[in-house]
Design a protein around this nucleic acid. Sequence first.
DNA 1: CTAGGGTTAG
Length: 745
Amino acid sequence: MRIRLIGEKGRQVFSQNLKITRLGKLGRIEEAIHVFSQLTLKNVVSYNSMISAYCKNGRISDARRLFDEMPQRNLVSWNSMIAGYLHNDKVLEASELFDKMPKRDLFSWALMITCYTRNGELEKARKLFDLLPDKRDTVCWNAMIAGYVKNMCFDDAKKLFGEMPVKNLVSWNSMLAGYTKNAEMHLGLQFFEEMEKRDVVSWNLMVDGFVEVGDLDSAWQFFKQIPNPNVFSWVTMLCGFARNGKIVEARRLFDQMPHRNAVSWNAMIAAYVQNHHYDEANRLFMDMPERDSVSWTTMISGYVRVGKIGEARGYLNRMPFKNIAAQTAMISGYVQNKRMDEASQLFSQIGIRDVVCWNTMIAGYAQCGRMDDALRLFRQMVYKDLVSWNTMIVGYAQVGQMDEALKIFEEMGERNIISWNSLITGFLQNGLYLDALKSFVLMQKEGKKPDQSTFACGLSACANLAALQVGKQFHHLIAKSGYVNDLFVSNALITMYAKSGRVFDAELLFKDINHADVVSWNSLIGGFALNGYGQEAVKLFEEMLINGVVPDLVTFVGVLSACCHAGLVDCGLELFKSMNEVYSVEPLVEHYACIVDLLCRAGRLEEAFNMVRGMKIRANAGIWGALLGASRVHQNLELGRHAAEKLLELEPHKTSNYVLLSHMHAEVGSWEEVESVRVSMKKSRAEKQPGCSWIELKNQIHVFLSDNQLQPRTTEVCNTLTALTAHMRNPGDLSEFKSLLKVFY
DNA sequence: CTAGGGTTAG
C-alpha cells in the first residue's frame, strides 16, 4: 500500500492530519480539536491522529469515545488506543482492548508487555511473552528485558538477556540502563566497556548515570567523548550542570548546541529558574521560538517554589492553552501558602480533573490540618491512586490522629514503600516509637523491602528509645542492604549511637562519611553535648567551621547546650552573639533557654534575667524554670517569685512548679507564703503527672509508668529494684547481681 | 533503550 495522491482534497486531509498530530504533541489540544472538527473529509488517519492527540493530553475518555464512534478502525487505531491507555496507566482497559483486537502485530504484543511491566505485573507480561508465536522479534524481547530492569528484577533481566537469540543495541542499552539508573556506576562502567558496539544512547545513559550520582566530572569526561552527541546528550549534560548550580556552564552548553528543540529551551529555562535567575529565565522564555505547555509550567512552578504566587498567577493568566499540569502547579502554589479558597476556586474551574490535581487539593487541606475537608474530597474521588491514599495517611499523622491514619492504611488494597514509610514516620512524629518498630517488622512480612528512608526512620525510633541493641541490629541490616553510604542513613546511625550513650561509636561512623552535611555535624555535636562532653562538642563545632560547613539553628542548640554543660560561659555567650551578627540567624526560644540556663548555673542571675527581658519572642516554661531554680539556689526571692508567677501562667497544672516555689518560701521562713502557694495549687487543680521511663533489654522495650499498673511485671520490677539498691550499698557479689537481672529476660 | 513541567514519605 502506497499513499496515493488523490487530488487537492486528499492533500488537504493529509496536511490537516499532520497538524493534529503536531498540536497534540505540543499540548495544544483545544486547537487540535478545532482542526479536527473543521475537517469535512475525515479518513482513518484523521481519527487515529485525534485519538493520539487526546491520549497525549490525558483525555483518555475522549479518545475512547472517538475510537468507538469512528466508522472503521485499522490496526493503528487499536494500537494507538492501547498506547494511550499505556501512557495513562490504565492497564485494565488496555488488556481488555488487546483481547478484543481482531488482528495483532508485533507492535501490539510489545505494547501490551510494556503495559504490564509498567504496572509491575511482571508475571502477566511474562505469560504474554511466553505465549507469543515463535516469530517474536527482538522488540518483544527488549520490552520484556526493559520491564525486568524497571522493576528492579535485574537477575531476571540478565537471565533473559543471556537467552536472547539475537541481541541488538537496544537490548544492550536496556541492560546498561539497569546499572546507570540504579546508581551502580562501577558495574555500569564495566558493562559499558564490555559492549562490542555503542551508540549515542549508550553514551547518554553513562552521562545521565554520572549526573544522577553527583559525579559531574565523570559526566563531563564522558560527554566530551561522545562521537556524535544528540539533543538528548546536550540536554542531559545541561541539566547536570543546572542541578549543581553551575549555571554559567549550563548556558555555555545551551549556546553551543548545534540543534535546539523545545526540550532544550525548556531545560535551560528550568536551569535559570532552579538557580533563581528569574530575569534570565523570563528573557529566554520570551525569546524561544515556540513555547509549549512545559515552558509555561516550568515558569509557573518555578515562581511557586519560591513563594512568588502573584508572578506565577500572572503567567497562568497569560497562558493561551491552560493545561492541567500548569493549573495544578498553580493550585500547589496556593496550597503551599495556605490559600485554600483560591486553590479551591481554580480547582473548580478545571474541566477534566485528573488524579494529580485531586491529590494536590487533598494535600492542601491536609497541610492546613483540615482533615474533614480532605476526607470529603478523598471520598468523592472516583479513581484514586497510591498517592491519594498516602496523602491521607500523612495528613492524619500530622494532626496526631494515628488511629485514623491506620484506618486508611488498612483500607488500602495495595501499598507501596511510601505508604509504609509514611505510616512509620507518622508513628515517629507522634512519639509512638514502638509502633514504628512494629511496622518495620510487619512491612517485611508483607514482602516490602525497606529502603534508605525506612531505615532512617527505624533508627530514629531506636534513637528516641535509646534502644541500642535494636539499633545495632538495624546497623547490621543496613550494612547488608547496601544503604550504608546513604547520607540520611549515616546521619540517623550517628544520632542513634549518640543518643544511646555510644557517642564515640558515633564519632567513628562520622569519620567514615565522605561528604558530611550540616545534619551529620549537628548529630555528632548534639551527641557530645548530650553525653556531657562539652569540650569535644565545641571543638567539633570549630572543626565544622574550618571545613566550610555553615551552622544552622540545630547546630547552635547543640553547641550552646554543650557550653552549658561544660560551664563554658564566655564561649557560650560569644557563640550566641555570633548567631545574629555572623550567621544572621534569629535565635529561637531553645537557644535563649540554653543561654539563660548557662548564666543561671554561673550564678549570673541578673544577666540572665536581663536577657529574658530583652527577648523578642515569648519565654517558655524551660526558661522561667531555669530562672526559678537558680533563684532558689542563690536565694533571690524577688526574682524567684517573678519567675514562678510566669511559670505558673504557662503551666498552671504542673505540681513541681508549686513545690519549688513553696520550698523557696520555706527556706526563708515565710510560712504564710508557703500556705498561699498551697492554696493556689489546689485552686488550679494541679495534679502530679505520672512519671514515665523505659529500658531496652534483650530486644524488648519495657515501659514504666509510676502511676500505672499496665506493665505486667511492675511488682517484680520493684522488688528487683529494692534488691539492687541493697546490693549497691554492699558491692562485691556479682553473681547474685546477674541472676537478679534475669528476671527481665 | 536516552533529555524538559504538575501530587505523597525522609
